[in-house]
Each structure stands twice: as C-alpha cells, then as structure tokens.
Amino acid sequence: MFETLRQSLKTGIVTSSYPKTPVEISSHARGKPEIDWANWKDARIGASVCPTAAIACEDRDGKRTATLDLGKCIFCGLCAEADATIRMTSACELSSCSRDELKNVARYKLASDGTQQSLIEMSGAVAMPIEPSSDSFETTGRELKRRVAHVFGRSLHIREVDAGSCNGCEMEIQGLNNPIYDIERFGIHFVASPRHADMLLVTGPVTRNMELALRKTYDAMPAPRLVVAVGACGCSGGIFGVNYASLGSVDRILPVDVYIPGCPPNPYALLHGILMAIGRM
C-alpha cells in the first residue's frame, strides 16, 4: 500500500500539459502528405506507388484529374519518396465533417508526353486548406470540455465499436485513457453500453460479419447521437476497400458526423476529431 503510494508520488504528474511542455509529436512523425500542386508534373508516379489509391488520376480529353484523398491515406510516405513535389508533414489533426473535404482534386492540362503541363483548377480541401493545428492536446481538450459542458451539460459518453479494424485504432483510442492524455479530465468517458452513449466511435472497414452488431449498437443509442468514423479504414475502407467480406467505410452503414483520418490516428488526432463532432451539435 505504502509502496504503491510512494511510487505514485515519486512519478508525479505525467499528464501532458502544454504550454508548459511542448507538444510531444516528433519531427520524424509522418502525417499528411503535402503536394506542390502548381508544380506537380506527374501524378502517375504517386498513384503507382500509393498502396491505398489515396493518390489517383484519370485522363480524359487531354486533361487529367488528380486526387489526393486523405480519407484513404495511411501516411506511409512512399509517394514522397518517389516524387520530389510531394513532401511529408507531421500534420495529423485532419478531421473533417465532410468526406468530400478530405479529397483534394486538381485538374491539369496534359503535355504530349503524358505529364502535367499546367494546373487548371482545384477543389476540395486545398481550396480550404486544412491548417495543421498548432493547438496542443491541452488547449484542444479544454475547448472540448467547454463545449461538452455547453452542449451536454456535464460530460460526453462515448461507446467504441470495432467494426472490423486491425486493432491499431483500438490501441490509440485506449491510449486516450492513459495517464499522459487522460481524457477523462475533459469530461469524456468511454462507456460499456450504447444506451449511455452520446457518441459512437467506429473503427475498421465494416465487415459483413459485424454489420448487424454495428447497426444494433447504433439503434440502442438515445438521440441526439453522434457517429465518428476513425482511421483510414473507417473513413474510406482503407487498404481493404470493398470486397466479399468488407463493406468498406462506416458511412455506407451509418450517417457519419466526423471523419478522423490516420492509420491509426494518434491521440491528438482523435481528440481533435471528437471536438469537431461536438461542434455539430
């Protein structure tokens, strides 16, 4: 007993508390890939190495439509290795309320050798750039607490459902409860029953075997309720996509309020997404 107390006291407070300590994301961390759209010469390079088709292109009538879909991206950095106009950033807070906003689409005029001659127009997230937030876990958390208090009165209850994930997302979601992130201090609790929940956090491409359980969990929740799709698989089906056993993204089954990209999204990205979802209430 005394030993337990002694060690706890010795360890002290470890919870992240920016601005006293700097944000703890390594400069080596791979987040969102950044494309120099105006000078992008050949989208086919990225498209051929991209394992999830997050970078894709289609040619028609001497024009090319090139897409970077953050909902599919697993931040592997292979495109940046192959193409110097792409660079990896450490931006990870990329959540969005709309699936389309995660897609950057550019149209190019093609040169005769099949490369891109000039940028015609852009749409999606590029038009409204997703600024890598400089907010810390602490500031985002405090903001979250304020909004939770405003919308729900006291606290936010989340039910998590793994609808087919590889368990990578579960690991990071569990991490929110560790003493470093300790998200309970912002009034957020993970609960066992959907009947107690305000928010459903869903990971994975939804498998055929889990579809019914997911629907039932959702149906058991009292309204108003929020659904957050977590990870590349939850947002878009990810590398699994749609196949005989996988139905793909969560929004094919349930109405999704917020998408949190990442493979898996780290605790900062998760907190950011949860905050965004509350903004929808």
């Binding site: 470890v14 994301i25 390594s26 791979r30 931040f75 592997c76 950095g77 991490g175 493979c263």
Partner: peptide, 22 residues
C-alpha cells in the same frame, strides 16, 4: 500505460510511426 506510451513515442521518433508502420 505510461511506459507503453514512452515506447510508442520512441517508435515515432525512430520510424515516423507510433506502431512502426512504414
């Protein structure tokens, strides 16, 4: 959990990803 988080951060510093992906 505190110790685990420390390893995940070192993973990120070494390989760019907390789960050593990539």
């Amino acid at each position: 959990m505190r110790l685990k988080e420390r390893v995940l951060r070192v993973n990120e510093q070494l390989t760019g990803n907390r789960l050593l992906r990539g």
